[in-house]
Design a protein around this nucleic acid. Structure first.
Lengths: 189, 189
DNA sequence: TGCCAAATATGATCGCCATCATGTAAGTGT
DNA sequence: ACACTTACATGATGGCGATCATATTTGGCA
């Protein structure tokens, strides 16, 4: 059956959002086209009316995730880091940071998908730099170091089953970042 | 055809080593049993004489990788970090750090594989702690923060196509770690 | 030297998945 | 209202990959 033009656009968005959640949760390869369509409340047949291929969906879903997560929530650096390095973010892969969820998988995807991811990376670095403030010539260094620590800690915490060790990694990295980003860290206290 | 007992053990080791390289390069799911056997110079049929299943191979391969990478090379902390955050390590996924290569994939594997990985994690943290020396009560914090940064930087650098940006991430993270691990970082210079 | 067990090779089987073919019914423009 | 388009559903198709069945050859032991 045909649906209205608006309904079709809404369906397309639902497909993209189901896909982006599933891809983050299970990785690109482990998610089937039929599974995405089912999660969007449709059947597999209509898929190729919306996308050229699964690879096309992957590329568009990556772009969609980053477009949706632009801006970020309220609060300054501390709130941002607290949320990023929280057990809630650790457990909420499907709705969490696309970088932490997909970094490893993206290597094996098409150039289009990798390009979309690269854009997301750049805007994340800028976002971290902005949150850190601009207190010196090494602001980019502090942004990149902070970002790498954040992503590393979340990825590692997610790989670890022992909740105590996972929490320790998040908390210690949080404190370690605080040490590293303190602007006057080389001055006497 | 049958082979000698020694030959069979050698074959088993070759399978494990082919598997561990391929898994790091392409991820667990993207590597087929036949591909592993071919890389080991055998055909797919003999596989189940060595392992119960592909999941069994994965678990044993993970354990094998960490067992093989025990100890680490010569040199102190600086040499270790330089090597870890080098373009060579970035490009040598198949022979590089199993943690950086497999963190994301391990979440979707069997308990046996995850347990083997967890052991590797713990020994890596201890290894970093030892390399850092033991200069204070926050030595574990510094080890975990350093480790998360290292893994994060390599995983991100591998996901990025632009060699310039990838190199920048490795180098800036290297410098950032130096800042963060300087024991007297809060003392006047 | 031979028998026998075992290690590999070759060749199914079965299910999953991306993609395509075709049917169907409901929007859309006149 | 009508004809036509089109979005989606149902139902192939073809390939790949994990696992199993069977054949073959040869090391190990009497």
């Amino acid at each position: 059956m045909k649906v209205s033009r608006d309904q079709m656009q809404a369906n397309r968005v639902r497909i993209l959002e189901s896909a982006s959640r599933l891809f983050r949760e299970k990785g690109f390869e482990a998610v089937s086209v039929a599974e995405v369509m089912k999660a969007a409340g449709l059947t597999h047949g209509g898929f190729y009316g919306h996308f050229e291929s699964k690879d096309d969906l992957i590329a568009q879903a990556v772009a969609h995730i980053f477009a949706a997560s632009e801006g970020g929530g309220p609060g300054g650096l501390a709130a941002y880091l607290d949320a990023y390095l929280s057990p809630e973010h650790r457990d909420g892969v499907g709705a969490g940071c696309p970088t932490a969820a997909l970094v490893s998988d993206i290597r094996r995807q098409t150039p289009a998908a990798r390009a979309a991811m690269a854009e997301g990376f750049k805007s994340q670095i800028d976002h971290v730099a902005a949150a850190l403030g601009d207190t010196g010539g090494d602001s980019r260094r502090r942004a990149i170091g902070t970002w790498a620590s954040m992503v590393g800690a979340v990825v590692l915490a997610r790989a670890i089953e022992d909740p105590g060790l996972a929490k320790e990694i998040l908390d210690e990295t949080r404190a370690w970042i605080d040490d590293g980003t303190r602007p006057n860290k080389n001055a006497p206290r």
